[in-house]
């Protein structure tokens, strides 16, 4: 009796799959791409537990267990880069994360529609330029002959070597990153603000709430869930401290100050004698930490009562 039911189910599954065969045909090109260019490299991280032999390839290289990790954890440069990554990212959360929120709150209060649109266009534009272009512009205005030092000289101060000093390297990172992308992230918060029910403001006004009070008690709570999602994403990137930016904005004088984990991986893989197993071990460490932090941040936010990044699977469909 049970057996026949199972057979029937199997048949109906096969029949349903046959009915959906054209949908599978649609998926096939994409799936092939994902397997080759996402899942094989993901599997390639198992090189962390192998010694890479060029003639045997990713799949054929022999397993060696945890040896590579013992080398990685013996390298002081590795720990230094991890520490630097965390340190730079802590600064990013402090000095970059709030900026788009503040911009959105301010721009939202502007009433002149045309002005608002122009400012928005200007703010979002630099996001669409590569870090190479932005770094070129920054080098141009911040070098000793540049515009900013020109102004400083006009005031009568000593010019500052913005790009060659390790002391102000971190502030420069935060300022240039904000210059490039704060305006773009602002758009996300602007959209969240636009979704707030305007009736709330009207009744607040009847109660005599000031503009600042309205921002504090209505607008900010209204975009709380967006802020939480952005925060989770920031935590999930804790091991990425902005390779594109640092790679292009550092120079011989500041490269030490900017040796984040990704720079370390790049340096050991592509600049010195490459040991791909060693690099894979570091990469695996990086991916795993990012993944765990993302899930952890999501859990903590849900535990605190906010809606997390991943809705429960049932809600997703």
């Amino acid at each position: 009796m049970e057996n026949t039911v199972q057979v029937k189910n199997k048949n109906s599954l096969l029949r349903r799959m046959w009915k959906a065969r054209e949908i599978y045909m649609l998926l096939i090109p994409g799936i092939i791409w994902y397997i080759i260019f996402a899942y094989i490299p993901m599997y390639g991280l198992t090189l962390a537990f192998k010694t890479y032999k060029a003639n045997l390839g990713i799949f054929g290289s022999p397993w060696v267990g945890m040896v590579n990790f013992t080398y990685v954890f013996r390298d002081p440069a590795f720990f230094e880069s991890v520490w630097k990554t965390l340190y730079i990212n802590a600064g990013r959360i402090l000095f970059q994360f709030p900026v788009p929120i503040i911009l959105a709150l301010m721009l939202n209060e502007v009433r002149v529609g045309r002005y608002k649109k122009i400012v928005q266009t200007i703010f979002t534009f630099p996001h669409f330029l590569s870090w190479i272009i932005v770094a070129s512009i920054m080098i141009n205005i911040l070098n000793m002959q540049g515009m900013v030092n020109g102004i400083i000289r006009m005031i009568g101060w000593e010019p500052i070597n913005f790009l060659g000093s390790t002391k102000i390297f971190l502030p420069m990172l935060y300022i240039t990153e904000n210059w490039k992308s704060a305006g773009w992230i602002m758009i996300i918060y602007m959209a969240a603000i636009a979704g707030i029910d305007t009736e709330q403001y009207e009744s607040a006004q009847l109660d005599g709430a000031s503009r600042l009070q309205q921002i504090w008690y209505i607008t900010l709570p209204g975009i709380q869930s967006t802020i939480v999602v952005m925060f989770i994403l920031a935590i999930g990137n804790i091991m990425n401290a902005g390779f594109d930016q640092i790679f292009n904005i550092t120079n011989a004088a500041t490269v030490k100050a900017g040796e984040i984990l990704d720079m370390y991986i790049y340096r050991i893989t592509f600049q010195s004698a490459a040991d791909f197993s060693f690099s894979s071990a570091v990469s695996l460490f990086r991916s795993v930490v990012n993944f765990i932090m993302l899930l952890l941040a999501d859990r903590v936010c849900k535990w605190l009562g906010a809606e997390g990044l991943f809705p429960s699977p049932r809600k997703m469909r």
Binding site: Y34, A38, T269, S283, S287, M316
Partner: peptide
């Protein structure tokens, strides 16, 4: 399954080293 198959690549990636070898 296919949706998770896609979303997983956003959460976890191999990075540049295996990609270069590939």
């Amino acid at each position: 399954f296919f949706v998770y198959f896609v979303v997983l690549t956003m959460l976890f990636s191999g990075g540049i080293v295996p990609m270069y070898l590939l």
